[in-house]
C-alpha cells in the first residue's frame, strides 16, 4: 500500500511543487519593476536603484538566483524578505496560522453542514427541501465571493450591526484578537465553498438511493434513519471526498479575495502585499505552502477513499 500508492504520489508532489515555484518565479520576472524600484518609489535616481539592487542581490541573472534560492530552500532556508529584511519564515508562519484558523472554522462548521444539506437534498429529491437547498447552492456557485462578502457586510455589520465589517487588529494580531471579526469572512467562505460540496453530495446520494442494495434494504423494513446512516452515507460520501479535499486546499492556499475584503491578516493578504512589493522570497514560500497543501489534501482524500472502501481494503482473494 505504502510503496505502491503513497511513494509515487510523493514523487509527483515534488515535481508539482517545483513546477509551481518555477512558474511563479518566471511570472514575477515578467512583471515590470522589482523590489528595488518598489521600495525606492518613482522618483529614485538610477544610481540608488542600482545600489539597492546590488545589496538585495537582484543584479544576478534570474536563473542563477532561482538555483541559489532552490539550494537554500532545500535546506529549509527560504531567505529574508526583501522589504523588511526579516527571515520570511515567521512572517508567513503567522499568516498561515491565521488562515488555518479561518479555514478550520469553515471546514468544521461549513463542510459538515454542506454534507448534511447535500444528503437532505438528495433524500428529498425534487421536493421542496431539495429545490431550496439546490437553488441556494447554485446561487453560491454563481455569485463571486466578493459580492457575497459585501452583501454579508451590508446585512450583518451595517443594517444589523452585530459583527465588525473589517479586521482592525492589524498584522501582528493574536488569534484571540482576531476571533470577534471571524464570523463574516468565515460565512462568506462557507457559502462559496459549500456550494460545490452540496451539489456533489446531492448527486452522489441520488445515485446511491437508486442502487439495488438500497432498494433491497428498504424492502427489509428497516427504519429510514438506519437506511440512511448504514446503507446510503458510506457509499455516497466517497465521490464527495475529492471535492472536499480540493476545497480544503483552496481555503488554506490563501483565499485572496475574501481576506483582502475583510483585511484579514492571512496568507491571501500577505500574498497580495508581497506581489505589490515584488517580495520574491515571501511569494515563493507562499507558493510552496500552497502547492504542498493541494498535493497533501488530494493524497489524503485518495487514502481516505481507499480506507472507506472495503473492496480496496480487502481484495477478493486474500483471506
Amino acid at each position: 500500500m505504502l510503496t505502491r500508492f503513497v511513494l509515487p504520489r510523493l514523487g509527483w508532489a515534488v515535481v508539482t511543487i517545483m513546477l509551481a515555484t518555477m512558474l511563479v518565479f518566471g511570472a514575477m520576472q515578467a512583471l515590470p519593476g522589482d523590489a528595488a524600484t518598489q521600495i525606492l518609489g518613482q522618483n529614485a535616481t538610477p544610481e540608488a536603484v542600482f545600489t539597492l539592487r546590488r545589496q538585495l542581490g537582484l543584479d544576478q541573472a534570474p536563473l542563477e538566483r532561482f538555483i541559489t534560492w532552490l539550494g537554500h530552500a532545500l535546506t529549509g532556508n527560504f531567505g529574508t524578505s526583501l522589504v523588511s529584511g526579516q527571515p520570511v519564515g515567521p512572517e508567513v508562519g503567522r499568516a498561515l496560522l491565521n488562515t488555518s484558523f479561518l479555514a478550520g472554522i469553515t471546514i468544521v462548521v461549513g463542510f459538515t453542514l454542506a454534507l448534511v444539506l447535500g444528503l437532505v437534498a438528495g433524500l428529498f429529491r425534487d421536493r421542496w427541501p431539495d429545490s431550496l437547498i439546490s437553488t441556494v447552492a447554485l446561487v453560491g456557485m454563481s455569485i463571486p465571493e466578493f459580492i457575497v462578502a459585501t452583501l454579508l457586510v451590508l446585512m450583518f455589520s451595517i443594517t444589523i450591526p452585530i459583527f465588525p465589517a473589517v479586521v482592525v487588529a492589524g498584522q501582528n494580531a493574536t488569534i484571540a484578537e482576531l476571533a470577534p471579526s471571524m464570523p463574516l469572512p468565515a460565512l462568506s467562505l462557507m457559502f462559496v465553498a459549500s456550494a460545490y460540496i452540496i451539489r456533489m453530495m446531492r448527486t452522489s446520494v441520488i445515485d446511491v438511493m437508486e442502487t439495488d442494495y438500497v432498494h433491497t434494504a428498504r424492502l427489509k423494513g428497516i427504519s429510514m434513519a438506519r437506511l440512511v446512516v448504514k446503507h446510503v452515507v458510506p457509499s455516497a460520501i466517497l465521490p464527495t471526498l475529492n471535492v472536499v479535499a480540493m476545497n480544503v486546499a483552496w481555503l488554506i492556499g490563501g483565499v485572496v479575495v475574501v481576506e483582502s475584503i475583510f483585511n484579514y491578516p492571512g496568507m491571501g493578504s500577505l500574498m497580495i502585499q508581497s506581489v505589490q512589493s515584488r517580495d520574491l522570497p515571501t511569494i515563493l514560500l507562499i507558493t510552496v505552502i500552497g502547492a504542498m497543501t493541494f498535493v497533501i489534501c488530494n493524497l489524503l482524500a485518495d487514502l481516505a477513499a481507499t480506507l472507506l472502501n472495503p473492496r480496496l481494503r480487502y481484495p477478493r482473494n486474500s483471506k
Partner: peptide, 22 residues
C-alpha cells in the same frame, strides 16, 4: 415497514448488487 420486516421478503435478482458493499 413492520409488514415487510416480518411477513414478506424478497430475494433480489442480482445479489451482488443487492448487498450493501460497505
Amino acid at each position: 415497514r413492520a409488514f415487510r420486516a416480518g411477513h414478506v421478503a424478497l430475494v433480489p435478482q442480482n445479489a451482488g448488487a443487492a448487498l450493501t458493499p460497505t
